[in-house]
Design a protein around this nucleic acid. Structure first.
Length: 305
DNA sequence: CCCCAGGCAGCGC
DNA sequence: GCGCTGCATGGG
């Protein structure tokens, strides 16, 4: 395994399920490198996280990431500030004890705080195709446009690079989908120009709906993608992305049915409201992720990583 | 060959 | 407002 010069240890007494967190957070470029050890690239540095009882080993190519010491960065990136003690309300637990038991297996799943631009482009690639294909697309962006960090690792490209890229190369990254490639280039251009200010959308002063509506103005970003970017890239905890799996468990577990093949905007928002009514407004995002993971792994038998 | 995979936009009605 | 279809590709 690649030797990383800087290391820190985060001693904590809060629950952390690293594998579920990285998988559900859709950090598509992260890889499992050993038992309880995962490696990724964030803000142009390699980051390796190893989970131990009540401690997290942090190793990196730099002593600071995004201007913060490794310990502080990991705390924010992994969403460890969230209080999990009231994630599921007493009324939810008494009404759905079996779901509570099932989801509790993944207690310690957190909401990632990814790099906003990488999250934005990654989720634009995650439309109606399998995880393997999504991972391939996102990796190609780094392979073709990123800068070397080490022999084996590259950064995610900057907005300026993608904005100036040849369309034919972007098409390769976008699973040969020229429409998606154009959309991605247009969004990268908007970010590069400062017209789409991701830092502003992730500021505490920016509310969720404003961030969401701003993203929705761009082609290639619909309700679900906007919610994903808000939840995992911009730190808006009340976002509740509804994909095909979430739609399935809402129907199966809570009897919330939708008839049509594709969700209209209105129906999508209605489904969100129904889910928030059950899971609680402030906890819906994280609680939904636990249910999502339980549904995928235990009910559908799909594997993470 | 079918349907499904962490959807979106555009079309006809 | 709706419901459907094309986009694109790999796997079951």
């Amino acid at each position: 395994m690649l030797a990383l010069p800087y290391r820190a240890e985060l001693h904590h007494n809060v629950p952390l399920n690293l594998e579920a967190t990285l998988f559900c957070g859709q950090a598509f470029r992260w890889q499992k490198v050993a038992d309880n050890a995962f490696q990724g690239v964030v803000y142009g540095e390699i980051l390796r996280l190893t989970s131990r009882p009540n401690a997290l080993l942090i190793e990196s190519t730099a002593s600071r990431i995004n201007g913060k010491p490794l310990r502080d960065f990991a705390w924010i990136y992994l969403g460890l500030e969230d209080n999990l003690s009231e994630l599921f309300s007493p009324s939810f637990i008494s009404r759905y004890p079996h779901l509570y038991r099932g989801a509790s297996k993944y207690f310690g799943l957190r909401l990632l705080r990814q790099e906003p631009f990488e999250a934005l482009i990654s989720f634009m690639c995650a439309q109606g195709i399998g995880i393997a294909l999504i991972r391939r697309q996102v990796s190609l962006f780094s392979l073709l446009f990123g800068d070397f960090i080490a022999i084996t690792e590259k950064s995610f490209p900057a907005p300026e690079v993608l904005a100036a890229a040849r369309l034919s190369t972007l098409v390769k990254c976008a699973n040969n989908n020229p429409i998606r490639a154009k959309n991605i280039r247009a969004v990268a251009h908007a970010v590069a120009k400062g017209e789409l200010d991701l830092r502003q959308l992730s500021a505490p002063t920016c509310d969720f709906q404003t961030a969401r509506e701003t993203l929705l103005r761009y082609d290639g970003i619909g309700e679900k993608i906007a919610d994903c970017v808000c939840l995992f890239g911009l730190g808006h905890r009340e976002a509740f992305p509804i994909d095909t799996h979430v739609r399935q468990y809402l129907k199966e577990w809570f009897g919330i049915k939708t008839s049509t093949a594709t969700l209209s905007s209105k129906t999508y928002r209605w489904l969100c409201d129904e889910a928030r009514a059950i899971l609680g407004k402030t906890n819906a995002g994280l609680a939904g992720q636990l249910l999502f993971h339980y549904w995928r792994k235990d009910i559908k038998g799909l594997t993470a990583f």
